[in-house]
Design a binder for these strands. Structure first.
Lengths: 238, 238
DNA sequence: CGCGTCATTGATGTGCATCAAGTGGTGTGG
DNA sequence: CCACACCACTTGATGCACATCAATGACGCG
């Protein structure tokens, strides 16, 4: 996730260590889109990057930090939609209605790159690979959400938690962190909201996974002792 | 949904009665994208338009008919992802991996417009409104899937069925059909797969809605007697 | 220390799955 | 034209997973 680099004025995608995750383009293409990122923004833990109803202008590429994406329901309670980490894009929800539907709160201090949507449109016309990549990003998000839909429709509590942990650990691993150790940034309640479970059920699912020797859990520090067993729980969906 | 017009060689988006639903662009823009749709294809009831694993080349705009979109799971059973009707787009799932993940089967005889993806890319560069619209389509699909995720995570059987019926009736209504009468194209089992419920539960949910005077059900003919009550069941989500 | 937040654990209740039987409509063949 | 089979669906009985209610524990902080 790299060290924080607050308020730097040097914005250089081509030399960003997240380049391959965030914008996998050729060196050539990078020279032509060097005006894509207009700014960096730091977001303190607990601060909102997106707010429901806000006008859609920008996409945000997460440079560091960890975000919870959620809806505020009419009842006032929040519904967690997902969690995003470095190299991932926030803000695609605003495209349809020109307003953001989601809220995005930083669960740890974060830094994001600001990508004005107009700019993406213009540059996409010059750089087909960028156009294509924007589509891929959206398609990826779509597939992710549909997998989630599947999970909620067909898997039980233990399987849902297993899938959640496996997904997190894989994403952390892609970013150079241990595949077997992870530190949860969110509460059990937020996990529950995301997985369609109550907090007690999440807790019991953790307990079960510990009892079967698959996990070691100390508060939010998770140690995956038996990745194969964890994977086996996630029934081959597709 | 308009009459079938099999194998016509005249492809004229600008004068299509689904224009506003499918491609809401200006007359001016239409002249510049008149090569977007390269062909029409008829799909007989029961035939597959998309097959899991097929190379992604085209998007399809549904001109008439009704499709079931589903995955074939490793276990061999099918998981319904959604249902698409005229004016809607099929095929966005293939963008990420260049292969289609979904299967799409026609639940009634259908006709689709073939939109080569390369062509969309090229024309998007000339017509910003088209580029924008492709993004909107994907964003819409994303929002739809996320609402589904919410439904599966938080609503009970009756509420899920209510939401499903209300959504179908609204979409039919947008296409000029009665808001209160609809004919289901899919089996109870397919509804159940989509809603994360077993067939018996779907059946019981129908029975409940009939008992409370909200619906009149005769096999697949649904009459919505009390739309307000049906809407009230769909707890204000957002 | 006392309080708040987060998490775990236990006891009980409920909604949906599962198992099982039966209905009604449709198609087929004698 | 009826007997039979098949399919989609409905209905009932029972079991189980998760929700709910309630109590307690662990940690951090003013």
């Amino acid at each position: 996730m790299g060290p924080l680099n607050p308020n730097t004025s040097i914005i250089d995608c081509a030399n960003c260590n997240l380049r391959d995750l965030c914008l996998p383009l050729s060196k050539d293409d990078f020279e032509r889109i060097d005006t894509l990122v207009t700014a960096r923004r730091t977001v303190k833990r607990g601060d909102l990057l997106l707010r429901n109803g806000a006008i859609f202008n920008n996409l945000f590429a997460i440079r560091s930090g960890f975000f919870k994406i959620y809806l505020t329901l009419a009842s006032g309670q929040e519904q967690v939609i997902g969690f995003q980490m470095s190299g991932e894009i926030i803000g695609l929800d605003g495209l349809e209605s020109d307003q953001h539907v989601h809220n995005a709160v930083a669960l740890e201090d974060a830094e994001v790159c600001v990508l004005p949507y107009d700019r993406i449109g213009e540059l996409s016309r010059e750089v087909p690979a960028l156009q294509r990549h924007v589509h891929v990003l959206m398609s990826r998000e779509l597939v992710r959400t549909q997998n989630m839909m599947l999970l909620l429709g067909t898997q039980n509590a233990e399987e849902r938690l297993a899938a959640f942990l496996l997904n997190l650990s894989q994403r952390f691993h892609e970013r150079g962190y241990s595949q077997s150790e992870l530190v949860l940034r969110m509460t059990r309640e937020e996990i529950g909201s995301y997985l369609g479970l109550k907090i007690e059920t999440v807790s019991r699912a953790f307990t079960k996974l510990v009892a079967s020797g698959i996990l070691d859990v100390r508060h939010r520090d998770i140690h995956i002792l038996n990745p194969e067993a964890l994977g086996a729980l996630v029934k081959s969906q597709i």
